[in-house]
Amino acid sequence: MSAADEVLDVVDRDDRVVGQAPRGEVYARGLIHRCVFVQAADARGRIFVHRRTASKLVFPSHYDMFVGGVLGAGESYARAALREAEEELGVSGLPRPEPLFKFLYEGAGGAWWSYVHEVRCELPVAPQESEVDWHTYLSPEELDRRVAGGEWAWVPDGLEAYRRLREFRRRLPL
């Protein structure tokens, strides 16, 4: 089965399931669906950053500071966050990613409910070759410089999640 054939839950603007459709149809018709974003940091607090493969259906060859992906039909956000993080990082036994906040992304590529998580990955990574073309770890400061510098084409939904995550962290009590 190709990625385009995977069945997804279609949801409304309140994140309620209203139907199901193959991923290819969801993307083609611009239907709202569900996605997880997981920011993975190593033991030194550096953020996993990667370039997506050219074969990705959405935002091919773009850079991202999150691992993640769409939820399959009936899948929970928590289960998808762990599954996607382990798959894309190429690890097993990862701690359960911590859920932080959810927002409705509406922009380039369509619209989807996006649940942002974070996880500490102290395991050696072996990123999934079908998903990740290149990877590194960047300090939060270097990541901020790369985002501000504009020399890398970032996935727009990940960039929106990153901006919201930075704001979320600024509002946390010390």
Rank of each mutant, 00 (worst) to 15 (best):
R13V: 11
V38Y: 01
R34K: 13
V49I: 15
T53D: 03
E75Q: 10
G19C: 08
S92V: 08
L82G: 04
D64S: 15
P60Y: 11
V36P: 02
V67F: 09
T53Y: 14
L94M: 06
R46F: 01
Q20V: 10
R46D: 15
R16L: 05
Y63P: 02
D15I: 06
G72R: 10
S76H: 13
V70P: 02
V58K: 05
L94V: 11
F66Q: 02
M65V: 13
S61H: 13
V49R: 03
E6D: 10
A78W: 09
Q20E: 14
V49G: 00
S76C: 11
D15F: 07
A40H: 05
A85D: 05
R13L: 06
E84G: 01
R52Q: 08
D42C: 07
V18T: 14
A21D: 14
C35M: 12
G24A: 09
S55A: 15
G93V: 14
G68W: 00
E6A: 11
F48M: 09
R29V: 10
V11N: 08
D14L: 14
V58F: 03
R34L: 14
V10C: 13
L94S: 10
R96V: 14
V70T: 13
H33G: 06
D14E: 13
V11T: 14
H62F: 04
S76N: 11
V10A: 04
G30R: 06
E86A: 03
G72W: 11
S76T: 15
H33N: 02
R79K: 09
L8G: 00
V91E: 02
A41L: 07
E88N: 10
R44E: 11
A73F: 02
I32H: 05
H62W: 00
V49F: 06
A21P: 04
R79Q: 13
D42Q: 01
G93F: 05
V11S: 04
S55G: 13
V70K: 04
A80R: 03
S55V: 12
V49E: 01
Q39E: 10
R52F: 10
M65T: 08
I32P: 01
P95N: 07
S76A: 12
P60V: 02
H33A: 11
A40N: 00
G90E: 08
L8D: 03
E6T: 12
P60S: 07
E87F: 08
V36N: 04
L82F: 08
E87G: 05
P60T: 03
S61K: 12
A85M: 11
D42A: 05
I32R: 12
E84W: 03
L82N: 03
L31Q: 04
D9N: 12
E75S: 09
E6G: 01
A73H: 10
Y77N: 02
